[in-house]
Simulated scan of single mutants.
Amino acid sequence: MTYLLVLLALLGCMALLDARWKLFFWARPWAAAAVMAAGMAYFLAWDVRAIAEGIFLHRDSPLMTGIMLAPQLPLEEAFFLAFLCYQAMILFTGTLALLRRRSVPGPAPAPARTTEPAGTEDSA
């Protein structure tokens, strides 16, 4: 159960970042949902294939709920894949936003003024 709660907390943190800077779901909800569904489908298919090949095996843990979506596929795996996809898209869209901000020309910075404190001028 602990692992699921940690994953839910991490998903919540991603959602807060997304909401604050409107990066993914808050920018384009329908497109984001389609991307998340495609990513989840891809990674779940990957997991199912790896399970069938004997590469991924589930081991019991007191940190997990014990709920299985399919043989060798725990509930937590679906939440982990959701976190993985969401995190990747937050990083991708956040990087794009940062690069856009840096490439937009803004006003030139004012030249630095050097002023001498009163009474320190050279009178040579």
Rank of each mutant, 00 (worst) to 15 (best):
residue 47 D to E: 14
residue 38 A to M: 08
residue 26 W to Y: 15
residue 20 R to D: 04
residue 50 A to N: 14
residue 50 A to P: 00
residue 39 G to V: 09
residue 47 D to P: 04
residue 48 V to E: 10
residue 52 A to R: 14
residue 21 W to R: 13
residue 38 A to Y: 03
residue 31 A to C: 00
residue 33 A to F: 10
residue 51 I to H: 08
residue 29 P to G: 11
residue 48 V to F: 10
residue 25 F to T: 04
residue 28 R to C: 07
residue 28 R to A: 15
residue 41 A to L: 12
residue 51 I to F: 11
residue 51 I to Y: 11
residue 37 A to M: 08
residue 51 I to L: 04
residue 46 W to Y: 14
residue 23 L to M: 05
residue 38 A to G: 09
residue 50 A to Y: 08
residue 42 Y to V: 10
residue 26 W to I: 01
residue 51 I to S: 05
residue 25 F to K: 08
residue 24 F to I: 05
residue 34 A to T: 06
residue 30 W to P: 00
residue 45 A to S: 14
residue 20 R to P: 00
residue 24 F to A: 03
residue 36 M to V: 13
residue 36 M to H: 06
residue 46 W to N: 07
residue 50 A to C: 09
residue 32 A to F: 05
residue 21 W to S: 10
residue 25 F to R: 13
residue 50 A to V: 02
residue 49 R to L: 10
residue 43 F to P: 01
residue 33 A to V: 05
residue 46 W to C: 06
residue 49 R to F: 07
residue 46 W to G: 00
residue 52 A to F: 00
residue 52 A to Q: 11
residue 20 R to H: 12
residue 25 F to G: 03
residue 24 F to Q: 04
residue 31 A to W: 03
residue 22 K to S: 14
residue 28 R to S: 15
residue 43 F to W: 13
residue 24 F to N: 03
residue 42 Y to N: 02
residue 44 L to W: 05
